[in-house]
Each structure stands twice: as structure tokens, then as C-alpha cells.
Amino acid sequence: MLNIKDLHASIGEKEILKGINLQVKPGEIHAIMGPNGSGKSTLSSVLAGRDTYTVTSGEIEFEGKNILELSPEERSIAGIFLGFQYPIEIPGVTNVNFMRTAVNEHRKAKGLEPLNAAAFLKIMREKMEVVEMNPSFSSRGVNVGFSGGEKKRNEIFQMAMLEPKLAILDETDSGLDVDALRIVATGVNKLKRPDNATIVITHYQRLLDYIVPDIVHILYNGQIIKTAGKELALEVEKRGYDWLING
């Protein structure tokens, strides 16, 4: 599904990703762990098409097609979803308007008619239940005045609405208390299907107790320095990253 080959990316003059190789198959859950500044968030932004980063070499293939030239919206339509570490507040744009616009753009790309208001609200309510979100949030400005937990739930809600093939969840656990973490993780697990895949980016093992990965990668200094099964996450939890970096 996703095939990253020797990906290099920089911001300004500074190279952050220094040759990433990663393959993700349908049905898999990958975890990418690594200390601060290792390039985890850069990798997720580059996958989603953020133009503040320049890809200097390498390839990203998604379902057999090179996506490097695609805009963020084209990547979304293609089935890539980024759950933001810091979801953006957009005062004045209501959640419902935001999602209706997004869902209808996805439908348009598939040659479907836009959903009418009633049909849309019905789907929206169903999907809000996935993350136990209060329906009153739909009429509020996107993420405006939301707590950390509510913002992350809103990310997973959006993911539920857009039904991506590949979801990249960037530090979805940061700023969450145990209850919010459970709700968010349950949401992600409910959305799991044999034909979609998830990349979970995280600092800590904690989230991986709830979302169990098939494969764990350690990212350090812009490269993946180790790949193993889920036991690797437990080992990192016990021993930290030093033994990997210096070993």
C-alpha cells in the first residue's frame, strides 16, 4: 500500500529525513517511535503533502503511484489521512460545515452526488458515537475551545467520516488522560479493517497497549534504525532509546 524508498526531506537548508525506507501493507498497524527531534512529525507532514518541507530525493508510492507531486487535498482524496499532533483551531468554520465540505469533495472525486443535509447529519451522528463525542460539538468552530482530549477525538471523528485507506496518527496520545486515550484508541480500533492500514507515531509505549502494532520502527536522526515486532516497544519503554542509538 505504502512504499517509501530512500526518502530525504529538508526544511530550508536543514536536512531532517535522511533516507527513510518503509513498507506498509493493507491490514497492518505500524508504530513509529523515536526521541524528540528524530523526524517523526516531519515524516507525517511530508506524507500528507505539507509544502514547508522539500523532498530532495527518494520516492513515496501509495497504491503503486508516486504521490510526491500530489497536493494535500489530492492525497486526502487518494485515501491518506493525517491525524494532527496539534489540531488547528479555525474560528468561524463550524465542524459540520468543515466535514460536509470535505466529505462532499471526497464524494465528488468518486463521482457521487453530494449528501443532503439530513443524510449527512445522520452519518455525522453515527461517526461521533465512535469517539463518544457530544453532538453539540458539530455546530462549534473547528477545535475552538476544545480541550486536548476533545481535539484528538475530533481527529478520529474526521478519520471516521473520511474512511481513509492509510491513517497516520501523529502523537495522538500527547496531552491525553487515560480515559481520553482509551476512547481515542477504541475509536481507532473500531475503524480498523483488513483493507486499511495505520501508522501510529508516538513517544511512549502507553498508546500501544491500546492500539497493538504489528511492526515497530525506531526513528532516529532522520533514519529508521531498527524495525521489529511489538516487543520492541516494550523494550524501549524499559531501556529508553540509548541502547539503540549507541548500540
Binding site: 500528507a48 494535500p72 487535498e73 486526502s76 472525486a109 473547528v142
Partner: peptide, 26 residues
């Protein structure tokens, strides 16, 4: 904001329009 909106599949022009509408809404 613009990147956030676009990352959900909203084309740049529409996303910019949403931002402007939001700005005017107050």
C-alpha cells in the same frame, strides 16, 4: 489552517474561501 483544511480533501480555493468566510463571520 489552510494545510489542515486541505489535508481533509478540501481544494485550496475552497479552503481559502472557508477561511475568508470564517474571518467575516464575527
Amino acid at each position: 489552517e489552510l494545510f489542515y483544511l486541505r489535508s481533509r480533501g478540501i481544494p485550496k480555493k475552497e479552503a481559502q474561501l472557508l477561511q475568508q468566510q470564517a474571518f467575516a463571520y464575527a
